[in-house]
């Protein structure tokens, strides 16, 4: 059953169409990646799904309810952690609950239960500046999760981290996802990351951007550390690369 349905979305800015006729379905507990070059309209699509801007055409459905142009339904997370520097981690994470009108005391209580699950023990009373980059992204992810347990939109959430931290956070992410089964739409320009984390990878190419290919990653979960070194992994990567190359005559800035 699909939790989120993106139905034929088209959006343009200043006469220029950025994304065209994009349709997507996200099933419960599934992780779908949108993979494409930078500036391909991925962020525009996220703003439309999050209700921050209205599409020219098309609809967004959450559990079969039309939420087009209505913020406050699905949460998103960016490359920047956007933790507010003047709030403790605990109060940052509790922010979506406070915005929904929960009392501060109740919100803190509710939040505290998740800290160990997300590997954030002992950071409750700290300020964001006191945490490492990887920890901050975990906190931001917990905040995203607390906002909506249904759908999370992650916009290149790990791309600002260094390689080792990134790899560690991938392992952690796969573990946490096993437990919480969050339906996730994941934007990235990192092919390895897309294959490692996703159930399906949607390739967004062209100008205006549209989805030209969808690849299912059949690898069973939980996925181990050896998956990225396996032959199957390389075959997926080959498939994706050759598709991207056939689509873009321009230089591809994938990492």
């Amino acid at each position: 059953m699909s939790v989120l349905r993106v139905d034929r979305i088209t959006k343009s800015f200043d006469q220029e169409t950025v994304i065209e006729d994009i349709s997507l379905e996200l099933n419960k507990g599934e992780l779908v990646s949108l993979l494409g070059v930078s500036g391909g309209g991925k962020t525009t699509l996220f703003h439309v799904i999050a209700g921050l801007s209205r599409p020219d055409q098309g609809r967004i459905l959450l559990n079969n309810v039309d939420i087009t142009g209505r913020p406050g339904q699905v949460s998103y997370m960016l490359q920047k952690d956007l933790l507010l520097p003047y709030r403790t981690i605990e109060d940052n994470v509790a922010l979506p609950l406070l915005i929904q009108g929960m009392k501060k005391k109740d919100a803190r209580k509710r939040v505290s239960g998740y800290f160990s699950q997300f590997g954030l023990e002992g950071t409750q009373k700290k300020y964001p500046a006191q945490l490492s980059g990887g920890m901050k992204q975990r906190a931001a992810l917990l905040r995203t999760y607390l906002f909506s347990e249904q759908v999370a939109l992650l916009d290149e959430p790990f791309s600002a981290l260094d390689m080792l931290t990134k790899s560690a956070i991938h392992d952690w992410y796969l573990q946490v996802m096993e437990q919480i089964q969050l339906s996730t739409l994941f934007v990235t320009h990192d092919i390895d990351e897309a294959i490692l984390l996703s159930d399906r990878v949607c390739l967004l190419t062209g100008k205006p951007g549209h989805i030209t290919r969808e690849i299912r990653i059949e690898e069973p979960r939980p996925r181990g550390k050896d998956f990225p070194l396996s032959r199957r992994f390389l075959e997926y990567k080959q498939q994706i690369l050759s598709h991207l190359e056939s689509q873009c005559s321009e230089t591809i800035s994938v990492s």
Binding site: G51, L52, P71, G72, V74, L82, L84, L98, I99, Q100
Partner: peptide
């Protein structure tokens, strides 16, 4: 930060909440 403001908007925050949670501090 306009990104922080739109994040709070995406969470459903109104003008007043954005003022107290971001602008004032």
């Amino acid at each position: 930060d306009p990104d922080a403001v739109s994040l709070l908007q995406a969470m459903g925050a109104g003008q007043k909440q954005i003022f107290f949670y971001i602008k004032l501090p």
